[in-house]
Structures are given as C-alpha cells and as structure tokens.
Design a protein around this nucleic acid. Structure first.
Length: 422
DNA sequence: TCTGGGGTCCTAGGACCC
DNA sequence: TCTGGGGTCCTAGGACCC
C-alpha cells in the first residue's frame, strides 16, 4: 500500500541444472541433454525444442528426442552456482526473497539512487551472472512481484522484459491465463470451459463468476492478479512452515516391515533437518499413495512439539497403519511420505529438554524422551564430523534404482541454510 | 505419460467454546 | 429447551509451485 511505486526484479536462471552441466562439460553445449535418469529433473533448451520437460519419464523423453543425452547431476555445483547467482542480487539490495535454488525476487526501489534505473540494474545483474558464472539468467522488471515473475517467464530464454509503470494491463491482457502464478492445468481447464483463455478475458470476467468457479479465495486472488493488484511485498528471512520427506517405492506390498524401514529412513531425514535448524513441530502428517496412484493422508496433532527421530517414526507408522486399515482392498503402495508442521523455533538450550509424549513412561522397553533425544544428538554430532552416511539409515536401504540421489533431496529445501547474506 | 522430491495455500466439515 | 452468531482448532483432500 505504501509502495505504490515499488520496483521489483524477478531473476530466474534458465534450465538451471542443464545449463550447469553444459557449463561444466563444453562438449554438451548446443546439444539436447537432460539431468536425471528415470525421470527428467531438467532439460536443456535444445531438448525442450523436442518437447522434453521436467517431470517427464526418461523413457518418454527418449521417445521424443532419440539423441537426448542423460547426464548425472553435479548437485554440489548446483548449490554453489545458485547461491552465487542470488549473491549478485544481494550486491544490489538487501531486500532479496529467494524462492528456490535458482530463482529470487529483489526489491530495488531504494537502489536506483546508487545504481541507476531498474532496467540498467537488471542488465548489470544478467551480465555479471553470465560473465562471472557462465550462466544464462532471465529477469523481469515490474511494479509488483507477480508481474515481475510473469515478465521473467516471458523473457526466457536469456532475456530481459521490463514492464513500465502504466503499461501493465496492456502487457498482461493478451497473455494466456496459464502464465499467471496459481493457474495450473485444472484452473486453466475450468476457465477455458467458460471461454476465458487470456488474462484480458479474465480481467473482464464477473468477480462473482470467478468466485463461483474457483472458490472465494482463489476467485478473488485471480481477479486481482489479472488486473495487477498484487499487494505482496518482498519478504527476506521467511521460515519454512513445514518439513517433510517422501520416497517413491515403485510397487511394494504394504508390510509392517516396509512401513518401519521407510518411515525410519524418512523420519531420520526430517528430524535431522529440524534439529539442525532448531525447530520442532506438533502436527505429523503421513501420505500413502497406493499402487493406482490414488493417495490419502492421515495426520495427528501432538500435545507438544517434537523433533526426535524415533517419535516421528512411531507416529508415522501408526498413521500409515490407520490409513491402510481404512482401505483394506489396497495391498500395495507406491509412495510413502511424512511431514511435520505447526513448527516452533526452539532455542538450542530449550531443545535439550525432553519433550514427553503420553505413554512414554507407561510402555516398558520404549526409550524415554530424554534418551531418544540423547541418541539423536549423538548421531547428529557424529554426522557433523564424519558425514551423513557414517551412521544411521543408509539411503541404499530403500533404493531399488527408482530413487533420486540423496544429494538431490537436499537441494529442494527452501531455506536450506546455504543461502547468501542474511 | 505409468509420474521424483520439496514445499505453499485453500476448502470444508466437525468439535468445541463463548 | 430451543435458537443464534462468532471464533478457533483439527483433520482430510486438492491445486499449485520449483
């Protein structure tokens, strides 16, 4: 509201993983490549020209593009180069909101006195990322976050699009609704059913119609985006609201042993990350996806926040059992997931206090909360010194060739602790 | 097309309280 | 006893994003 004349940059590295691979190995440049194996994690623009997309199965990608080269991921390099690119934004303004490993907003409203007009700042950012890191990056410049994001998508690949104040609607109107943030395949189809295909058509639609079609919140929000009334500010230090982990399993019989093994592994990942960030959570949610791809969730809210591996494992196994009991016909599962929400931030000292669970004392043979916590801390310390694989669950316990490398799991974290500045 | 892993936000019904 | 309104929390599901 105060920022009527805000100037926002949205910077987005192009085909990021694939670009890094082409940077590291010059023989891959100009060729269609995909990062991944069983599934495409990222495709180069040469591969995208054949219709190859992220999330696509490797087999399908090869059908579309027989010359496609699959490359193994250099995950450490992705993190390093992603951090470095975001670091260039930090040189321009402290108001940087990182959205993922390869994408961030920057509010440069107050930077123009030092660095010149916003388009010049955007060009300088692009030039530095290209010269110093060797990577293409697209930038959108506009008066709101949402429009800057749309502009950077229009700018791809390796481009800059500036939407001058006052020209927003002219820019937006002809674009397909799919470019708006929050419009996916389902919403796109619903809108198309009523004849709405462009943002202009969306902006002209009756608010009442949109609310009826998409629900009150989504309808109002979308209507606002269509007329560029986006009130959000760039937020720096956002903290995650939940932490989770999942594993695709192919097709496995849902035995008790599978539940214990898998949730032991997943809870270990989640709990370790939570403790490293000094966080604990009360709500535990389990997702069970059956062989037919239908999935259900079960959740429970505990009396106190937890971050111990064993506690999360036990609760997750219990929840999964109830989900399976509710669907007795489903004997095989294709994915198991656990996440912890209702997070609180605990000072380290307070985390030392055992967070008791009802039943802790009553069940003979189960470790008490204090003991659980002590075990976790010991493991955390050993891993800090000797690496994650040195103790505890090994990823290989689960991997049957379908899984994604352990290193990749670390990347998708929103506030992964590797971020620049702060 | 037989689908990876990490998240956010919204909806809707029910329980419970004042 | 019946009725009303408002608020919060919990649970399950779904769309969407990178």
């Amino acid at each position: 509201m105060a920022n009527r004349a805000a100037t926002i940059l949205h910077a987005d590295l192009d085909a990021f993983y694939a670009s890094v691979e082409q940077l590291l190995d010059p023989s891959l440049r100009g060729r269609p490549i995909a990062v991944g194996g069983g599934v495409v994690l990222a495709a180069s623009y040469e591969a995208k020209a054949f219709g190859v997309q992220g999330g696509m199965s490797g087999r399908r990608a090869r059908e579309l593009c027989p010359d496609l080269t699959f490359v193994g991921g250099h995950f450490g390099e992705y993190q390093r180069l992603g951090d470095a690119a975001i670091g260039v934004l930090h040189d321009v303004t402290p108001l940087v909101e990182r959205i993922s490993i390869d994408e961030a907003f920057a509010d440069v409203t107050g930077s123009v006195h030092l660095f010149g007009p916003a388009p010049a700042i955007a060009e300088a950012v692009r030039r530095r990322v290209r010269d110093e890191l060797g990577l293409p990056i697209s930038v959108g410049v506009a008066t709101t976050k949402h429009l800057a994001k749309v502009a950077s998508q229009v700018a791809k690949p390796d481009g800059l699009v500036v939407v001058e104040a006052g020209t927003e609607q002219r820019f937006l109107d002809p674009l397909p609704v799919r470019l708006l943030w929050g419009v996916g395949p389902v919403t796109e189809a619903k809108l198309a059913d009523t004849g709405i295909r462009t943002v202009g058509e969306l902006a002209a639609a009756q608010p009442e119609l949109l609310r009826r079609l998409l629900g009150p919140a989504a309808g109002s929000k979308l209507g606002s985006l269509a007329v560029n009334a986006d009130p959000r500010h760039v937020e720096t230090g956002r903290r995650a609201a939940s932490m989770g982990a999942q594993s695709a399993l192919g097709r496995r019989e849902a035995t008790d042993e599978l539940l214990h093994t898998t949730f032991g592994f997943l809870a270990d990942r989640v709990a370790t990350r939570m403790r490293a960030k000094g966080r604990a959570g009360r709500c535990i949610t389990v997702r069970v996806r059956f062989a037919g791809m239908r999935s259900v969730t079960r959740s429970t809210t505990l009396p106190a926040p937890v971050s111990t591996t064993l506690t999360i494992t036990e609760v997750a196994v219990d929840l999964a059992r109830t989900a399976l009991a509710d669907h007795p016909r489903e004997r095989e599962v294709s994915l198991l997931a656990v996440s912890v929400s209702q997070l609180v931030t605990e000072p380290v000292l307070q985390l030392e206090l055992p967070l008791g669970l009802p039943g802790d004392e009553r069940r003979p043979g189960t470790p008490r909360a204090a003991d659980r916590w002590a075990v976790d801390r010991s493991i955390d310390r050993v891993r800090d010194r000797f690496g994650r694989a040195s103790v505890g669950f090994a990823a290989v316990a689960l991997s049957d060739g379908h899984g994604v490398p352990d290193e990749f799991r670390e990347l998708a974290e929103r506030d992964g602790g590797h971020g620049p500045g702060q």
